[in-house]
């Protein structure tokens, strides 16, 4: 009976195997060339294979030695924060720096443990104003300040 004694390493190993093998399989579609004239697929194929092998070693070792369990995932910060970041990417060009940045600040703050609306709103306003002044007015980064109709 196989027992996973080191879960962290076990899962890490499996991830490495999957990525390595995947890369090696994809690389086979590219021209391989010869050792003297390596094609686009040569080095990726070799390294993908190598990663998969290392993954196998890690996985096997995880069956032999004890280790800590994988800790709980902080799902709320993970998804709320990354979600807010993606939304920022979607809207920044159309809605402009001020609105998207304020939304980003409010959104990411929502991913934390404490959420005091007043405090966060002040932060959002301050950040939006600060970034507009520094990055757009000061440094001249090409962001729109307001949505297109505001001009």
């Amino acid at each position: 009976m196989i027992k996973i004694r080191n879960p962290k390493d076990f899962w890490a190993g499996l991830i490495f195997i999957a990525i390595g093998a995947g890369a090696a399989i994809i690389a086979r579609d590219y021209p391989m060339g010869t050792i003297a004239r390596m094609g686009a697929g040569y080095f990726p194929f070799v390294l993908g294979t190598l990663l998969a092998l290392v993954g196998v070693i890690i996985t096997l070792m995880a069956l032999g030695a004890d280790g800590e369990p994988v800790g709980a995932f902080a799902l709320r910060p993970l998804f709320v924060i990354l979600g807010a970041v993606v939304v920022f990417g979607v809207i920044v060009k159309t809605l402009g720096m001020v609105i998207s940045l304020a939304l980003l600040v409010i959104g990411t703050a929502f991913g934390g443990h404490e959420f005091k609306l007043k405090e966060v709103l002040i932060l959002a306003v301050v950040m939006a104003a600060f970034c507009t002044l520094v990055f757009i007015k000061g440094l001249g980064l090409p962001f729109p300040v307001w949505p297109a109709f505001g001009q």
Partner: peptide
């Protein structure tokens, strides 16, 4: 308050 600013 710091981390939303850093993320921004």
């Amino acid at each position: 308050l710091l981390y939303p600013a850093i993320l921004a």
